[in-house]
């Protein structure tokens, strides 16, 4: 059985004429790194964290099951132990007066004993390389540092699933790289990661699967190379240059090797 399962999920926001998710069926195994592209990315992420249907007004049909727990029947706070969610804007996710205050916030809410907090705080901050900033005020940090603290503040609860809703959208390239370094380490540790983003180039080298949702329906859910093969002509997807080049010259050069995901793989493909 899959670790995260969407069973025929349809969701319509309160007041909206049309559902944003229409009969979505997706199964994600434990330890997978899934990139989500297209429409309703945030809605998809919020379904996993349980914010939908508990915190966001709307009409939901179907079930989302995370780690054997049906999100509809579980409280968001219970799911928070298993699912850590990082939202787009780092500024509004840090609501305490110090970095360490923000990181321990979830532990305090989940009644973790005080004696255990220090160890978990240091562990989470070390993972995102923010330990030297533990006494800083969040307003003193750069965008990338804030987002790393936001990630630490969910990792501290040791969730099995990390859901990130466009975590680098408001960051500069350096801040984005900092966040992806953290995600690479998280992936190596075996955390299940679901990330909504608009840039497949950043996600593909890390992803085990990539999901494209269009007009509320799953258009493609495959491992990255197969994903590109199936949807490379989709105008809404911004293909990495190396992938774009591959598909442009595939027929003229009669290429049959695998789709390159990185420049290094491209050199290997085209260099022969």
């Amino acid at each position: 059985m899959a670790f995260i399962e969407f069973r025929d999920v349809t969701f319509r926001y309160s007041g909206a004429p049309e559902p944003v998710l229409k009969g979505v069926n997706v199964a994600i195994d434990e330890g997978e790194f899934v990139g989500v592209f297209g429409d309703a990315k945030s809605t998809f992420c919020l379904c996993i964290s349980g914010a939908i249907p508990h915190l966001i007004a709307g009409e939901m049909h179907g079930d989302v099951i995370v780690g054997g727990i049906m999100t509809r029947e579980s409280r968001v706070s219970e799911l928070a132990r298993m699912v850590g969610t990082v939202l787009q804007d780092p500024e509004n996710q840090l609501f305490n007066l110090s970095v360490e205050g923000d990181v321990v916030f979830a532990l305090e809410n989940l009644c973790v004993p005080r004696e255990e907090m220090e160890e978990r705080l240091v562990e989470a901050l070390e993972l995102v390389r923010m330990l030297p900033y533990r006494h800083h005020v969040p307003t003193e940090l750069s965008g990338g540092q804030k987002q790393r603290v936001a990630i630490a503040s969910v990792l501290v609860a040791r969730p099995k699933v990390l859901v990130l809703d466009e975590p680098v959208r408001e960051l500069d390239p350096l801040g984005g790289n900092e966040v992806f370094e953290v995600l690479t380490r998280m992936k190596e540790q075996g955390t299940t990661i679901i990330i909504a983003d608009n840039d497949p180039e950043r996600i593909a080298p890390l992803a085990t699967k990539m999901l494209l949702i269009e007009q509320g329906r799953v258009q493609c859910f495959e491992e990255p190379r197969r994903f590109y093969e199936l949807v490379h002509d989709n105008p809404r997807l911004r293909l990495p240059q190396i992938v774009d080049l591959y598909f442009r010259v595939k027929e003229p050069l009669n290429l049959h090797n695998r789709v390159p995901l990185t420049v290094e793989e491209g050199v290997e493909t085209f260099g022969r």
Binding site: A51, R75, V76, S77, L87, F105, L110
Partner: peptide, 10 residues
Amino acid sequence: LAMDLRGFCA
């Protein structure tokens, strides 16, 4: 939303 997702007043 961010506070609820971290178990605020759970």
